[in-house]
Amino acid sequence: MKEGTEWVHLRTCQTCGVTLCCDSSPMQHMSHHCKETSHPVVISSETGEKWLYCYVDDMIVEYS
């Protein structure tokens, strides 16, 4: 929002708790965060979505 760009979905880092935009968004902030910090796991911050993604394993896991 600070940069004035649109985001598609938000993801929350499970290591530090920061919430950033997803890879479908123009700036792909969460991917950059994970690469820069080695924080591998994020969850969806979207209502009704219950899954996590690991950048290292390139794997999505659904949970309840």
Score class of each variant (00 low, 15 high):
Ser25Trp: 00
Val41Asp: 02
Met27Leu: 14
Ile43Gln: 13
Leu52Trp: 07
Met59Ala: 13
Thr15Arg: 05
Gln14Thr: 04
His9Val: 04
His33Phe: 09
His29Ala: 13
Cys13Val: 08
Gln28Leu: 05
Ile60Val: 15
Pro40Ile: 09
Glu36Met: 06
Tyr53Ala: 08
Cys54Pro: 07
Ile43Arg: 14
Thr37Glu: 02
His39Ala: 11
Ser25Ile: 02
Cys16Gly: 11
Val41His: 04
Val42Lys: 12
Lys35Arg: 14
Thr37His: 12
Ser31Val: 04
Ser64Thr: 02
Val42Met: 12
Ser38Val: 03
Gly48Cys: 06
Gly48Ile: 13
Pro26Ile: 11
Met30Lys: 08
Ser45Arg: 10
Asp58Lys: 00
Ile43Gly: 05
Lys2Ile: 02
Lys2Cys: 04
Tyr63Met: 02
Pro26Ser: 09
Thr15Gln: 13
Met59Pro: 02
Thr12Leu: 00
Val18Trp: 00
Pro26Glu: 12
Val56Gly: 01
His33Lys: 01
Trp7Asp: 08
Ser25Gly: 04
Val41Gln: 00
Ser38Asn: 15
Met27Cys: 12
Ser64Pro: 01
Thr12Gln: 05
Met1His: 08
Ser44Asp: 10
Lys50Gly: 02
Cys13Leu: 06
Cys16Val: 07
Leu10Tyr: 11
Met1Asn: 09
Ser64Leu: 06
Leu10Asn: 05
His9Tyr: 11
His29Asp: 09
Met1Arg: 09
Arg11Ile: 01
Glu49Gly: 05
Glu3Ala: 05
Ser24Gln: 08
Glu36Ile: 01
Gly4His: 04
Met27Arg: 11
Thr12Ser: 06
Thr19Lys: 08
Val8Trp: 06
Pro40Gln: 07
Ser44Met: 02
Cys16Gln: 03
Thr5Lys: 14
His39Glu: 11
Val8Pro: 00
Val8Gly: 00
Thr15Leu: 00
Ser45Thr: 15
Cys22Ile: 02
Ser24Pro: 01
Thr15Val: 13
Asp23Ile: 12
Thr15Glu: 15
Gly17Trp: 14
His39Tyr: 07
Val42Tyr: 05
Glu46His: 03
Val41Arg: 11
Tyr53Glu: 12
Val42Ser: 11
Val56Arg: 02
His9Lys: 09
Asp23Cys: 10
Leu10Glu: 07
Arg11Met: 14
Tyr53Gln: 13
His29Trp: 07
Tyr63Asp: 07
Trp51Gly: 08
Ser24Asn: 01
Trp7Gln: 03
His9Asn: 08
His39Phe: 07
Glu62Leu: 10
Ser45Gly: 15
Ser24Tyr: 08
Asp57Met: 10
Leu20Pro: 05
Arg11Lys: 14
Tyr53Trp: 15
Lys35Gln: 14
Met59Asp: 12
His39Leu: 05
Thr37Met: 14
Lys2Val: 10
Val41Met: 03
Asp23Lys: 05
Lys2His: 00
Ser31Glu: 03
Glu49Tyr: 13
Lys2Trp: 04
Cys13Tyr: 10
His32Cys: 03
Val61Gln: 14
Glu3Asp: 10
Met30Trp: 04
Leu10Thr: 04
Thr5Val: 09
Cys34Ala: 15
Tyr53Asn: 07
Asp23Glu: 09
